[in-house]
């Protein structure tokens, strides 16, 4: 790939945005450029990234899922409630994680049925199920805040891979999750680029009819997508509970905005067909930076939400402008070819 193309890539623009924003924040407040802050940004990105990877897959396929926060908190909270109810309190994390992933996948399967079997538009389907999931959880599972979460989950909140004490300043802690999250991220990337399922997801986003004619089952692909997103959301949900060291059924409300903004800023086309895992990672980092550190610039919390919303709109506008530019170039290049 030549240099000009590299510059035009969405990822490049994101890296530049992240660097500039960091420099601006760093210039205003010296505590920004510390290891402790960097590790904090990572920590606050883990759950976001898991959600975002799921949303990325859906968006590439030409759909949208707004039910993932509901699925995440439903799965995480329900797992905790179940463990308390049956007095399961194992030392290791396997049980709560497996439980939450299974619950998430089941909820994802409900989305799959609505979308693949009944053909309900994805936004409407997941908006609806989102309400159903939250309502069912609050009615039948519980509506109270749980602070004494299972011991394994509680311990995991402080499981650090690295602890570095600088000569002055706060202790920098790098959470151990960085390793599994990195592995999952790479796996999702491989899934999207190297497997037939992954390419089917792109194909679906490129054109439903053409995909069907290739002999790819639209329904099966969609069903897999929404179950996979459910599973990822379930994992994200239980990790969220663990890192927060509490299970609050009202949590994660409104986080759709941050995640979808991160994925779209990461270059995934809201029309489907385009998007990369690397772009999504950068998008998540950018949003975490804004959410966690804009306050250092004296920007109040309420304005951060507006900023994220504005970024989402800007991201989509840039996509639209690029698309129309491309279309223009295409016309010219087609006639160039013709002139030869």
């Amino acid at each position: 790939m030549d240099f000009k193309k590299l510059l035009l890539r969405n990822e490049t623009a994101l890296i530049i945005a992240i660097v500039i924003l960091s420099l601006v924040i760093g210039a205003k407040s010296p505590e920004f450029f510390t290891l402790a802050n960097l590790f904090d940004i990572f920590r606050s990105s883990f759950v976001q990234l898991l959600f975002a990877l799921g949303v990325l897959i859906v968006i590439i396929s030409g759909g949208i899922d707004v039910s993932f926060p509901a699925v995440g908190i439903f799965a995480g909270y329900t797992s905790v409630v179940l463990m308390q109810h049956f007095e399961w309190n194992p030392e290791n994390l396997l049980l709560p994680i497996a439980l939450s992933i299974v619950i998430g996948t089941i909820l994802g399967a409900i989305n799959s049925i609505a979308i693949a079997s009944f053909g309900i538009p994805t936004l409407i389907a997941t908006l609806g199920t989102s309400g159903i999931f939250r309502g069912l959880m609050l009615t039948f599972i519980g509506s109270s805040f749980i602070s004494d979460i299972p011991i394994a989950l509680d311990k995991f909140a402080t499981a650090d891979l690295l602890k570095i004490q600088p000569e002055e300043g706060t202790l920098a802690r790098l959470h151990i999750l960085i390793i599994p999250i990195a592995i999952i991220t790479i796996l999702v990337s491989l899934l999207l680029t190297r497997t037939m399922f992954g390419r089917s997801v792109y194909a679906l986003g490129g054109g439903v009819e053409a995909t069907r004619r290739l002999g790819i089952s639209i329904k099966r692909t969609q069903a897999k997508i929404y179950m996979l997103v459910g599973g990822l959301s379930g994992l994200a949900g239980i990790l969220y509970v663990s890192l927060q060291r509490k299970a609050n059924p009202y949590d994660l409300t409104g986080s759709e905005l941050d995640i979808i903004a991160a994925v779209v800023l990461g270059g995934a086309s809201i029309m489907g067909g385009y998007g990369t895992v690397f772009g999504t990672v950068l998008g998540v980092l950018l949003i975490s930076l804004i959410k966690g550190n804009l306050i250092l610039l004296g920007v109040s919390g309420s304005w951060q939400r507006a900023a994220v919303g504005a970024l989402l709109v800007i991201g989509i506008t840039v996509q639209a402008i690029n698309e129309s530019k491309k279309a223009k170039n295409r016309r010219v290049s087609t006639s160039d070819e013709a002139a030869e």
Binding site: R199, Y202, A203, G205, G206, G207, E209, A210, T211, R213, L214, G273, Y274
Partner: peptide
């Protein structure tokens, strides 16, 4: 029935 977002190679090989 080609997929515009995929490469020529992928469209042929899929």
């Amino acid at each position: 029935s080609l997929l515009p977002n995929l490469t020529v190679a992928e469209n042929i090989a899929l």
